[in-house]
C-alpha cells in the first residue's frame, strides 16, 4: 500500500521528487500533480526513475533551455515515439546490466509520460509495438482530452460535444460527434499488460496502481484523467475536484485490467448524473446552449451507464481467469 500523504511529506522533506519547481505549466494544471504522485511513489519504494516524455504541454513547459524542471534522467525525442524511445532506454539498461556496466544494486523504473495526442493518436503505433514486445516500463497517460499544448484541437480522446478549434461547435455540427476511444481496452488487448485508470482526486487509488505497475513483470499503462483548466474552461482551483466528479458520474470509472482480469477499484454507492460533470466546464457551454442539448447529454449518460454495466459484467466474467 502507498504511504499516507503525511508520511510522504516526511520522506520528501529533503529528497528530490524528480520534477522541480520553476516549470511553466498553467496555474492549477493537473499534469504536474500526476507526475509528482507517480514519481514520489516510485522513489519512496527505492526506485530510480528514468523518464521519457512525448511532445506536449508537460514537455515544453518543463524543459525550456537552459532550464529543466527534471532532477531525474529525462529524454524527449518526438511526439509519436515516447514508447519506442523508452523501449530503447530500457533495452540499453538490460544490455548494459548483462555486460556488468551498471551497478547491479540499482532499481530502475522506466516511465513514459504522454498526453492523449501522443497516446490515442499519433503515438498509438509506437505504444502498441512497445507493449507487444513486453518492455518493462510504465506508460503514464495524462489525459486532458485534446491537443491542449497547441491551443485546444480535437484528439481521439476529446469527448462528444466539447468545443475544440478543429471540431468547433458550429451552426450545423455540435462539436465533436465521436465518442472517445477506449484506450484502456486497446492497451489491455495486448494481454500481457497491467492497465488501469486513475484520477488525482483519488490519490491512494492512483498511487497503489503505480505500485502495482512497478511490481508488474511487463509493461504497465496508467490512464490518468488530467484536466486542462484552460481549455476545459474551468476554475483553475477546481482541477482536483472535477476528477472526483468524473468518477462519481461514471465519466471516468476507476478500474484495472491485469492480464485480462478486470477489477473495479472504486464502486461509489450512488452516482451523480453525467450532466454535473459536463456543466462544470465551459468547453461544453456552446453545446449546452443548443436546442438538442438534452439529447446530447442523454446520449452521453446512456454511454457511461452501459459502459459501467459492461465493466461490472467483465469483472464478473474475468474473475480468476487471467488470459496469460
Amino acid at each position: 500500500m502507498p504511504l499516507p500523504i503525511k508520511k510522504l511529506a516526511e520522506v520528501f522533506t529533503n529528497k528530490e521528487i524528480g520534477i522541480t519547481q520553476g516549470h511553466r505549466m498553467c496555474p492549477g494544471c493537473a499534469a504536474p500533480m500526476v507526475v509528482k504522485m507517480v514519481l514520489m511513489t516510485a522513489k519512496a519504494l527505492g526506485y530510480e526513475p528514468v523518464v521519457g516524455l512525448a511532445t506536449g504541454c508537460l514537455e515544453v513547459s518543463t524543459t525550456v533551455f537552459p532550464y529543466t524542471a527534471w532532477s531525474v534522467p529525462y529524454i524527449h525525442n518526438a511526439f509519436e515515439n515516447v514508447a519506442a524511445t523508452i523501449s530503447g532506454v530500457e533495452t540499453a539498461y538490460r544490455a548494459l546490466k548483462k555486460a556488468g556496466k551498471i551497478p547491479a544494486d540499482k532499481k530502475y523504473a522506466f516511465f513514459a509520460f504522454a498526453g492523449d495526442g501522443g497516446t490515442y493518436d499519433i503515438g498509438l503505433q509506437s505504444l502498441s509495438g512497445a507493449l507487444e514486445r513486453g518492455h518493462k516500463f510504465i506508460y503514464v497517460l495524462y489525459d486532458n482530452e485534446g491537443y491542449m499544448n497547441t491551443g485546444n484541437q480535437r484528439s481521439g480522446s476529446t469527448p462528444p460535444g466539447a468545443d475544440t478549434t478543429t471540431a468547433p461547435v458550429g451552426k450545423q455540427i455540435p462539436g465533436k460527434l465521436q465518442l472517445k476511444k477506449n484506450i484502456v481496452e486497446i492497451v489491455a488487448g495486448h494481454e500481457n499488460v497491467y492497465a488501469a485508470t486513475a484520477v488525482p482526486a483519488e490519490p491512494m487509488d492512483l498511487m497503489s496502481k503505480v505500485e502495482k505497475a512497478l511490481a508488474f513483470d511487463g509493461p504497465a499503462f496508467l490512464a490518468i484523467l488530467s484536466p486542462c483548466v484552460r481549455f476545459w474552461r474551468m476554475d483553475e482551483s477546481k482541477s482536483v475536484d472535477i476528477t472526483k466528479l468524473a468518477v462519481e458520474t461514471k465519466y471516468w470509472p476507476l478500474y484495472e485490467v491485469e492480464r485480462g482480469v478486470y477489477r473495479i477499484t472504486r464502486k461509489p454507492s450512488s452516482f451523480k448524473p453525467v450532466s454535473e460533470f459536463v456543466k462544470m466546464q465551459g468547453r461544453f457551454r456552446l453545446v449546452l446552449e443548443r436546442p438538442d442539448a438534452d439529447q446530447i447529454i442523454k446520449q452521453l449518460q446512456d454511454y457511461v451507464d452501459r459502459r459501467w454495466e459492461r465493466l461490472l459484467a467483465l469483472e464478473q466474467a474475468t474473475k480468476d481467469k487471467p488470459i496469460r
Binding site: 525525442n77 514508447a83 519506442a84 524511445t85 530500457e90
Partner: peptide
Amino acid sequence: HSAMSAVVGAAAA
C-alpha cells in the same frame, strides 16, 4: 520510425 526512436533512446541511455 520506432527503430530510430529506440536507437536514440538506447544511445542516450
